[in-house]
Every structure is written in C-alpha cells, then in structure tokens.
C-alpha cells in the first residue's frame, strides 16, 4: 500500500462511521451543529495520531498479554491532554461536548487502529494512518453535522463554539440570502425542522445518510455483476470463435490431404 493510499483510505473506502460503524456514540451525540462536529473530529485526529505514534514506538517493549490495558492507558493520557487544552482555549466547546470528551477513551476507532495498525507498522506509516483515519472520522461527523444543522436552522453558523478567527458568531451560509433576493424580511430559522437538532433527529439523520451509502454500494455491486456477466459472455464468444476457426482449419487440412 502506498503512502497516499494509506492516507486516503479513511475517507470513503474504510470510513470508520459510514462503512465500519465504529464510534457511533459521538456520531449521534455531538453532531447537532457543524462546529461541534468539527471540534470533536479534530480532537479525535489529535488523540488518534498521538496514540498511534506512541503505540508504534513502544510496540517492542509491551508484553502481548497486557497490551490492551497498556494501549488504553496511552489513549487515556492523550485524552486528558486534549481535555485540559479544550478547557483552556475553547471553554464553549468543552461545555457542549460534555461527557463525550472523556469518552474518546472508549471510542472503538482509536483502540481498533492501535491494535490493528500501529502495533504492526513503523512510526511514519502509523502517523499517516492516524491522520488519515482521523480526518475520515472528521469528514463523516461534518457531513452529519452540516446535514442536521442545515435542516434544523436553514443555515451554517461559525463562532459559537469555536470562537477563532471571528469576533462574533457569523453565518457561513443561510438560505435567507437566496430567498431574500425575491422577497423581503423572510427568516428561515422560523421554518426549520427543529427535531433535527434534538436526539430523535440524530438517529433519523444518520439513518438517512447510511441508507444513501447503502444505495450507492448496492448500485456499485450491481454494476460490477453486470460487468462480470459481460466479461463471461465475451470470453464465451471468443472461445466459440476459436473453436470455429479450429474446425475450419481442420476442414482445410482434410481437404488438402485429399
């Protein structure tokens, strides 16, 4: 596997949430808005990369019987670091994530990567794997977050939970901009589907997105089957032609012999 493939596999082919269904708890709990999902994703990137590096560095020293507790301690250390950093620099995000910040420890994705990849590969590959898989996880969270926030409020906000680059919360995009070209004084937030920012909406939104993925996958499988059928038909045709040619050649030989 090349380094580029190693980095890109986490986005679609081996996406932790959409394909492997790992780490579903944060995928449902913190994706009410775009910002909280992005923040959670970046924290997971940090923890995953750090734990992958350390695990691949110490893989020779840890006895095989106690490796899972040892990995959990390494992960818990990085989670504590992240918890303190978030508390210091983004207190709004800390409050919004709540109990799901310490719960990064039991995210199956991180322990799974430590067990399946970092304990068998060198430091560079493990780092690339950690960043790639973490960004794949972030990508999935952001897709769900944008879907939910857009349906709930009709726009995407920035600056409420991640107060960087701006002084006050701003809208990255809202439907108001388009609708107000035609009418005046329309506020899309009054017509949002508020249920999508509540717990039931999380389940339904993730269900819809996963159904989309399955639809794409089933179509791909169908296409592959059709291609296979075509290939088999082509081979059969070729074999038949060869047989005919052989028979013709034999007939010619027989004629020449006469």
């Amino acid at each position: 596997m090349s380094k580029k493939e190693n980095f890109l596999k986490g986005f679609l082919k081996e996406n932790p949430i959409f394909v492997f269904l790992l780490g579903m708890c944060p995928a449902l709990a913190v994706t009410a808005t775009f910002e909280t999902s992005l923040g959670m994703g970046l924290l997971v990137v940090f923890v995953l990369t750090g734990s992958n590096i350390v695990v691949s560095l110490v893989k020779g020293f840890i006895p095989d019987q106690v490796r899972t507790p040892a990995y959990i301690v390494i992960i818990a250390t990085f989670v504590t670091v992240v918890k303190m950093l978030t508390f210091a620099y983004a207190i709004e995000l800390y409050d919004a994530l709540g109990v799901f910040l310490p719960l990064i420890v039991v995210n199956c994705l991180i322990l799974g990567r430590a067990e399946a990849f970092a304990s068998k590969n060198n430091v560079l590959d493990s780092t690339i794997d950690g960043i790639g898989m973490g960004l794949g996880f972030t990508f999935a969270l952001v897709v769900i977050g944008v879907f939910r926030e857009f349906l709930a409020t009709g726009g995407i906000q920035w600056g409420v939970y991640l107060p960087f680059f701006v002084d006050a919360p701003i809208h990255l995009f809202t439907l108001d901009w388009i609708i107000n070209l035609f009418t005046d004084g329309f506020i899309i937030a009054d017509y949002g589907l508020a249920v999508f920012s509540l717990p039931p909406g999380a389940f339904i939104a993730l269900g819809i997105i996963l159904a989309g993925f399955q639809f794409k996958k089933s179509r791909q499988i169908k296409r592959e089957l059709e291609e296979k059928k075509k290939l088999i038909a082509e081979r059969k045709r070729q074999a038949l032609e060869k047989k005919k040619e052989k028979a013709l050649a034999a007939a010619k030989l027989a004629k020449a012999g006469e």
Binding site: G201, G207, Q214
Partner: peptide, 20 residues
C-alpha cells in the same frame, strides 16, 4: 438500501421521539 442498520436507526429515532 434501507435494510439492516439504516432502518434500525430510523426506528430508534421514532422511539426517541416517543420518549421526548
């Protein structure tokens, strides 16, 4: 395309609505 996990999640969403 809804078989398996997607339909289960939607069912869970409806249960969650009831508990809300």
């Amino acid at each position: 395309s809804w078989k398996g996990v997607p339909i289960s999640l939607v069912v869970a969403g409806i249960m969650s609505l009831a508990f809300l």
